[in-house]
Design a protein around this nucleic acid. Structure first.
Lengths: 137, 137
DNA sequence: CCCATTGGTTACCTCCGGGTACCTACGCGC
DNA sequence: GCGCGTAGGTACCCGGAGGTAACCAATGGG
């Protein structure tokens, strides 16, 4: 526990070093991005678009991202588009048709999210045990 | 962009498969953990404890985690302790002394957060550019 | 003429994270 | 007896996230 801790701590210092290389506003932007991506719907929506491997219409998307409201989905999609993680293509038809597609950047992001997510998923039993012990304390 | 997209999509399907292997409540727990860790202070606090490579007292911690309020730090620390990411040792002294230490689990978590964080930090210029284009549209 | 469809937008409401301010318990030095 | 310092707890307030429901524009079908 002692020496392995030191190794991990050094790794984390690398992150801090990487952050220091950025200007203050850029570090804030990093923080902002991380927190924005961890909101209720962004990653889920992105994952749906990734597994589809093709464009999806708004209504279709709302069916797949179970439980999301129109309003929240709109907002989420605008934010994802703004950051270049998805594209939004409007067709001048009636009734209107809008297609959303994940970008290369979006797929790259997901590929970096995956290991962390998998680790958390694998560690869930550990967390459950720890919580029970904590509760029973 | 076409075939690399397919590769990434398959990777993401692995995540979904990993999630399906868990019960529904466990999947919710995964989601909950990810979102909890992405809150305003958890990761930051954890990082401070990691770089310290030793115990830290409450007041000390509040100085380092710049901008956190007493209330929020208390809450954050309780949550981290509950999940076994840090330990909390109370000394029966006056004035009271409480020491917080990161656990092996906490360090492991940080090591898995690091690549994602680094990628986001590296991609910040890209995000800035994309946003400017979006704004100017 | 009426209505359904699609992709929103808007008003309204509630919940919760997080901030400030103030309180406590305790033993110490004065 | 009085303040001081530590590690919180508690009450109150504000803003923002996110849900619901109603409305809208344009047009093809009946």
């Amino acid at each position: 526990m002692g020496n392995s801790g030191k190794v991990e701590a050094n790794r984390w210092e690398e992150i801090n070093a990487a952050c220091d290389a950025l200007s203050e506003t850029e570090e804030e932007l990093t923080r902002e991005m991380v927190m924005r991506l961890a909101d209720k719907w962004s990653l889920w929506t992105l994952a749906i678009l990734a597994e589809e491997d093709g464009p999806l219409r708004f209504t279709r998307l709302m069916e797949r991202v179970e439980g999301v409201s129109q309003k929240s989905l709109t907002k989420t999609l605008r934010a994802l588009e703004r950051d270049g993680l998805i594209t939004r293509q409007i067709f001048a038809e009636v009734p209107p048709r809008v297609e959303y597609t994940i970008t290369a950047l979006g797929l790259e992001l997901l590929s970096h999210v995956e290991p962390l997510w998998n680790w958390v998923a694998r560690s869930v039993p550990q967390f459950q045990r720890t919580r029970q012990e904590f509760e029973a304390r």
